[in-house]
Simulated scan of single mutants.
Amino acid sequence: MPITATRGWPANVLLAVVFNLLILQSILTLPVIAGVTYSRLRQEIFRWVGVVAGLGLWVPVALGTWPGGAFRGVEMVLLSLFFLATSIRLVRLLARVPRVNVQVMAGAAAGYLHLGLTGGVLATATQVLVPGSFSLGAAASNQLMLDRLTYFSFVTIAGVGYGDVLPANAVGERFVILLSVASTLYVALLVGLLLGRFIASEEVEMLEDDALGLEQVDQSGPP
């Protein structure tokens, strides 16, 4: 992230590689809940939005800078839609797991990080479509907008609030409200649900071990 925050060709290449890996991972590793979450058509739309958004990140690499016009706005909207859909799919998947293990808990932690990245992409799209939604602070001239607003997203969901990046109009303020509520609900509801299921799973395993031990004692007979 410190390297991608700088301007120039190496930063654009690294940014494209990182986000394309995230897109590829989201497409390959998130299964479809048949008949519940996504139909086949929605799955194909999800994949193609990710592919087009990933390829669009290589355009500034080829040109040396972001092209003018509406390209950047369209690219940020596509990235926002893809990462928002990925976050929703991940949350719904985690909420449906019958038993919680270490891998599921790691997925919940990854979901929190993904929420911060999604917030940064959405904030960047908001800033591109509605210029002046955020006051980016003194470091804005030397830092890419996406990295600056990703930092702002993580500061917001963590409730730290350094005050160096601020919402500058009603659009930015409403975005902060939505992101704060989403992060609070994620931690309070989903993580609490998974922890409860994890504790229940541990108790079930302890009962099964006790029952197995008693069965082995009964089979061995009296000494």
Rank of each mutant, 00 (worst) to 15 (best):
V49I: 15
V128A: 10
L84G: 14
N12A: 13
G35E: 05
T118V: 05
I33C: 02
S220N: 03
L28F: 13
D210A: 11
S180I: 01
A200F: 00
L190R: 01
T6I: 10
L113A: 09
G192R: 04
G54K: 11
T150A: 10
L55F: 14
F154T: 11
F71L: 09
F82E: 12
S183A: 15
E203Q: 09
G196H: 04
I3T: 15
R40L: 10
Q219M: 11
V74N: 06
R96M: 06
S141Q: 10
V74T: 14
A109R: 00
P60A: 05
M145F: 00
F198M: 04
M1E: 11
R89Q: 14
W9N: 01
A106F: 03
V204H: 01
G73C: 01
V121S: 07
P10M: 06
M76T: 12
T150E: 04
G68A: 10
R99S: 14
S26Q: 04
D218C: 03
L149D: 08
A53K: 09
V104H: 03
V17S: 09
V130C: 06
L78A: 15
V17N: 09
V171S: 05
L93W: 05
D147G: 12
L55S: 13
V217E: 15
S141N: 08
G73T: 14
I45M: 15
G68L: 07
G120F: 01
P167Y: 02
T6E: 12
T37R: 11
Q216W: 06
L63S: 03
V32N: 12
L195P: 00
P98C: 05
V77N: 07
S183F: 01
A125V: 10
L113G: 11
G120V: 04
I27Y: 12
L81D: 07
V97C: 05
V160Y: 03
L21T: 11
L146N: 09
Q216N: 15
A85V: 09
N169E: 07
Q25L: 07
D147R: 04
T86A: 14
